[in-house]
């Protein structure tokens, strides 16, 4: 994902001299080519996320398009007030790019996990929240963030996500994507964990459970229509996210369900606490209740009710 992001950023910087990469001393190796090619469109501000985002807002007020990048947890938590007051309140054209979404930094522990970022940031006025699921989608989302005039939070994983699109990835801000059809249940998911959802849906298909998989790559604005359609057509809804169960995708879908007036079988898969344990990403997900087998169990249960 990071490589796909840097590829898009490199192209955008070549195309538009107002594109400006700010980093908070987090971009070893991945930024090497960018730094070499665009030294005048790059600043490493050191370990000072609040200052970076306040500066980004000031630069945007002068027509620059800053892409401010570091680990998402440090942006969303430490610098939250700078996102709110300097970027969102003043509607400044800043792209806030957080890596390590969810628990992808599985060996680093909860201080480096962005597992409540969507809950906080989804509530901020003017902010568009993008959470792509694969390298192709990250590339497209980076262009979409550039073309969108206004603040964007771009939530990236790491560099190990497999591709989920065989062909071209068409990316429209605010439009969910049906990745797999199915009528027994609809699974909504977002970000790096989507591959697990697709694999789970394939397994369930072999058991005779046909689950629709919908990629909500834009948390805000949310595609309410695709959710309502799934409610009408399946009546069985599951959300899966590598994020706390409170405030993220599951809550966003629940809001649509609650206001729809429809009776729906609904379950959320997400973290119920800080993540605990270390290991590979798959191991940590399983240890925290969001592993592939656990997704299958929840969908099986909802589809059978």
């Amino acid at each position: 994902m990071r490589t796909a992001y840097l590829k898009a950023l490199h192209e955008l910087a070549a195309m538009d001299k107002n594109v400006y990469a700010l980093i908070s001393d987090n971009g070893a190796i991945v930024y090497d080519q960018y730094r070499a090619d665009f030294p005048k469109q790059y600043l490493n501000l050191g370990i000072s996320e609040a200052n970076m985002l306040g500066m980004a807002a000031g630069m945007a007020s002068r027509g620059k398009i800053p892409f401010a990048y570091t680990i998402g947890a440090f942006l969303a938590y430490r610098a939250f007030e700078f996102i709110r007051d300097d970027i969102c309140l003043q509607n400044q054209n800043v792209k806030i790019v957080g890596t390590g979404a969810g628990e992808v930094y599985s060996g680093l522990g909860p201080t480096h996990h962005a597992t409540e970022d969507l809950g906080g940031l989804r509530s901020l006025p003017n902010l568009t929240v993008l959470c792509p699921a694969s390298p192709k989608e990250v590339y497209a989302a980076t262009y979409a963030a550039y073309h969108h005039k206004g603040p964007v939070y771009l939530r990236l994983g790491t560099n190990r996500e497999p591709e989920i699109y065989e062909g071209e990835c068409k990316f429209e801000v605010g439009e969910g994507v049906e990745l797999k059809s199915g009528g027994d249940a609809a699974i909504f998911s977002t970000g790096s964990i989507l591959k697990d959802v697709l694999d789970a849906a394939d397994s369930l298909e072999k058991e005779g459970i046909s689950a629709r998989v919908i990629n909500i790559h834009t948390l805000k604005p949310l595609d309410g229509d695709i959710i309502l359609k799934a409610i009408h057509e399946t009546g069985h809804i599951v959300t899966v996210e590598d994020h706390n169960i409170i405030g993220g995708l599951g809550s966003a879908v629940a809001e649509v369900i609650a206001e729809s007036g429809m009776w729906v079988k609904f379950r959320r898969v997400g973290l119920r606490d800080f993540s605990h344990g270390y290991g590979t990403y798959a191991q940590v997900k399983e240890g925290n209740g969001v592993g592939r087998k656990q997704i299958e169990e929840v969908v099986r249960e909802v589809a059978s009710r």
């Binding site: 600043l43 609040a50 200052n51 970076m52 985002l53 306040g54 500066m55 980004a56 807002a57 000031g58 630069m59 945007a60 007020s61 002068r62 027509g63 620059k64 800053p66 007030e81 700078f82 007051d85 300097d86």
Partner: peptide, 12 residues
């Protein structure tokens, strides 16, 4: 907040 914002303007 204002100092960082001003630094951003000065930088641009």
């Amino acid at each position: 907040h204002g100092l960082s914002f001003a630094i951003g303007i000065a930088c641009a």
